[in-house]
């Protein structure tokens, strides 16, 4: 394996959780709901995933538990913001506080417990392609899931009728309602999808990347996922670009340090953030304006009967 391949492999593992969580949040925001609680849902996924996997001895059940935990958190958020039309920003932030606390309670008995990670899944034939094979087709199932999610959501939002309706809810809930679409139900499903993705991303951390539990192990990745949605201008493929850009710079700066570059490590660590800003500005310049977010983002909707 060459150094380039090795670096790319690491970039993929570093970017995958960001991409999965970002894709979920992208769908939520497209439906017109801003859920700032990604970090809270993600860490609940990480905690419930590892605890369930240890309790049942099954990685797959761990993943399912993580997804369910993310969805349960999302349902709580939906109950507040859809059912009671509460403020979305405040509810999302409260969800993060709640999730960080609850994950600590759930994981308390398992601090320092470990299990074997979920292994790679080699795709026959394709995995033998030189260079691309080992990179793309001999990965853990989460990486495939992240590709599938990106492609699926891109298709869903642009090509399917349901996707169109979901976007309509995000642009103008009142119009979508007037056309007879169940805005709240659609938003509810979108929020649940976002929670499932955040939970899955959390499970990637606690079941694959570093299979054990410590409190706060998501370490702010939920926030980065939120930023990636914005970076992407709510386009799924560009979310993949954003996640890989961020993950890529993160890994490259670690490599540069290991190679002995005499640059302060604080500057190195700041690079992913700075470069993301610079690239966003460049993209916006090239596109001369670019797409804005969903017009109804963050606005509560209460149907008048």
């Amino acid at each position: 394996m060459t150094l380039l391949e090795a670096i790319l492999l690491t970039v993929i593992t570093a970017s995958t959780p960001l991409l999965i969580a970002a894709i979920g949040e992208l769908v939520v925001e497209k439906s017109g709901v801003l859920n700032l609680g990604v970090e809270g849902m993600m860490i609940m996924g990480a905690a419930c995933g590892i605890v369930a996997a240890i309790a049942t001895g099954s990685g797959a059940l761990g993943v399912i538990a993580a997804i369910l935990a993310g969805m349960a958190m999302a349902a709580l958020f939906a109950a507040l913001t859809l059912g009671l039309a509460a403020n979305q920003v405040a509810a999302g932030l409260a969800l993060t506080i709640f999730g960080i606390g609850l994950s600590g309670v759930v994981g308390a008995a398992h601090v320092g417990a470990q299990r074997a990670g979920i292994g790679k899944l080699e795709i026959p034939v394709l995995a033998d392609i030189p260079f691309l094979g080992p990179l793309l087709f001999n990965q853990d199932p989460f990486v495939y899931a992240s590709f599938a999610l990106t492609a699926g959501v891109a298709w869903f939002l642009t090509r399917s009728k349901a996707g169109l309706v979901l976007r309509a809810c995000g642009e103008s809930a009142a119009s979508a309602h007037a056309l007879g679409y169940p805005v709240l139900r659609i938003r509810f499903l979108a929020i649940l999808f976002g929670g499932a993705c955040a939970g899955l991303a959390g499970a990637y951390l606690s079941l694959v990347l570093t299979p054990f539990w410590t409190s706060g192990m998501t370490a702010g990745r939920g926030w980065i996922a939120l930023a990636i949605v914005v970076f992407a201008s709510w386009l799924p493929w560009r979310a993949a670009l954003g996640a890989y850009l961020f993950g890529g710079i993160t890994i490259l700066q670690l490599h540069a340090q290991g190679a002995g570059f005499r640059v302060p490590p604080q500057l190195m660590s700041a690079l992913p953030y700075l470069i993301t800003i610079v690239v966003l500005v460049l993209i916006m310049r090239l596109r001369r304006g670019g797409t804005a977010g969903p017009a109804g983002l963050g606005l509560p909707f209460v149907p008048d009967r």
Partner: peptide, 24 residues
């Protein structure tokens, strides 16, 4: 433990937000 107090704080915020709805 701190985590229990955070859960409690989160719940508290949920209630405040939920009850706010009643005003509107």
């Amino acid at each position: 433990p701190l985590d229990v107090t955070r859960v409690f704080q989160g719940l508290l915020l949920f209630y405040v937000l939920a009850c706010d709805t009643l005003l509107l």
